[in-house]
Design a protein around this nucleic acid. Sequence first.
DNA 1: GATCGTTGTTCCGCTATCTGGAACGGCGTC
DNA 2: GACGCCGTTCCAGATAGCGGAACAACGATC
Lengths: 276, 276
Amino acid sequence: MAEAGGMERSKLDNPEKHGAGTGTLGKALAVLEAVAMADRPQRFTDILQSVGQPRGTLHRLLGHLVDEGLLVQRQDLSYEPGLRLLKLAYRSWSGSRFRDIAEPYLLRLHDLTGETVHLGVLQETEIIYVDKVESRQTVRMSSQIGKASPAYCTGVGKAALSSLPPDELRRITARMEFRPFTARTHRSAAALLAEIEEIRRDGHAFDREEHEAEICCVAAPIAVQEHDLVAGVSVTGPSYRVSMAQLAIWAKDVRKAAAEIAEEVRIRLGPGRGER
Amino acid sequence: MAEAGGMERSKLDNPEKHGAGTGTLGKALAVLEAVAMADRPQRFTDILQSVGQPRGTLHRLLGHLVDEGLLVQRQDLSYEPGLRLLKLAYRSWSGSRFRDIAEPYLLRLHDLTGETVHLGVLQETEIIYVDKVESRQTVRMSSQIGKASPAYCTGVGKAALSSLPPDELRRITARMEFRPFTARTHRSAAALLAEIEEIRRDGHAFDREEHEAEICCVAAPIAVQEHDLVAGVSVTGPSYRVSMAQLAIWAKDVRKAAAEIAEEVRIRLGPGRGER
DNA sequence: GATCGTTGTTCCGCTATCTGGAACGGCGTC
DNA sequence: GACGCCGTTCCAGATAGCGGAACAACGATC
């Protein structure tokens, strides 16, 4: 529908997120996402209201998604994500050159601190975790690879944001919705931008229980312009075990790791070549 | 447009894998898969020959995939998987009730044996790993969640196959391509079926370096008909450390874990309810 | 136990969207 | 400077998607 122009492809122009539904594929993905993001199996009607799509259309769409193995329909008629998604994602994850390069540095950082280490990539207003190293005893390994968290209240997120050029930063912060997860979460773009100024100066960012209570971290930005890569590393721990003073001490190690990763990315993936 | 029947949706009816390309969505996914499965960034021409699609069509398809964030086009014009895939998969993985239920049993099995524990689900001729518990020092955690391996040469795969009804088993084995990974890999459906007969009797399966040299395992099937779930658990180790005798001893623990998981799945996800 | 409301499925004419052969422009090579 | 390769763009034609509306199967409600 819309989409008159012709020139511009999709760099960053569409004001909506995806989800709206460019063409047939877009609609199908909107449905897939609606099902994947829900935390319980979705029945036809559930989906019907989350994506505003006529019944007939939705029905066919779901049929196709099931045919393709992206969704599975259970005998109680509800839908849930299929395994094909996992398989597809695995290949894209395991083939990521960036993750691969960063890994040893993450391990080193973990050995040094004994705390959980995250690697995340900025994607619009969210950061998506692409790797994680944590101690055996904690919750569950890798439980959040692929997880998306808001950028404005996470260490990696804020660090990554701090490496953006001013106009890009403005564009992105403008689209944020400042949801107060804890008492300390930023509630406005102004507050966030002020802190980002500091972060830019210091070279590292803190998360002072802004996303989850009792959880804090230090993070540093990894930015490689030549590859459109805006990311961050962090060391995270529970407040009772890790003081802000301790985090401040680790800050330089995190910065160093970030710098080394960025450097190696630049070397190993020369300008002509590519990120993967 | 085939799909005359009416009742059955896509249980297992289409003779082709996916990939061929049912409708528009199918074609788009075939392209996505071609890029995701390749181990380096794909240029337009590369993709052109892997999916047999006219230039014009392919070009538009790629455009849409990029618009949707499923692919990213780099400045050297090559394509690679985008992060949206990872995000989508994360949600589907973390929301899986099955994985969640199985987890404690996997951990217990790991504590008992000290070796790597896998949880995999059968998907046609492949098994897809949905969880993994391994010792800290080994390679990398979770490095193969979402990985797809052939069913005929893995412990979990063979165990899962052994729980299928005969006709279903025949249908699936008929579609397998017996690639000899090691000297001990089954080379024919006949050989595989013979072993499956034994497995069905014993209640557990061994992988005697059939997929990778120096790697072997014991596995047991987890099958819950009411939920169309055909899966398996396994304990895996390197031959130099884990003897076949040792595996035989662990067999009963693996069987027990499998039985308990199946039981809890049945209880927690009562018939009317659902898997997720 | 008849009626109404809800939920999933099917139908079918309409047209938007996808289709794909062909032509175009940019680059590097011989 | 001509040739060949590669990515992109165009456009008439037709397929596949579209979606309003009718239908069937339950389950509540009175």
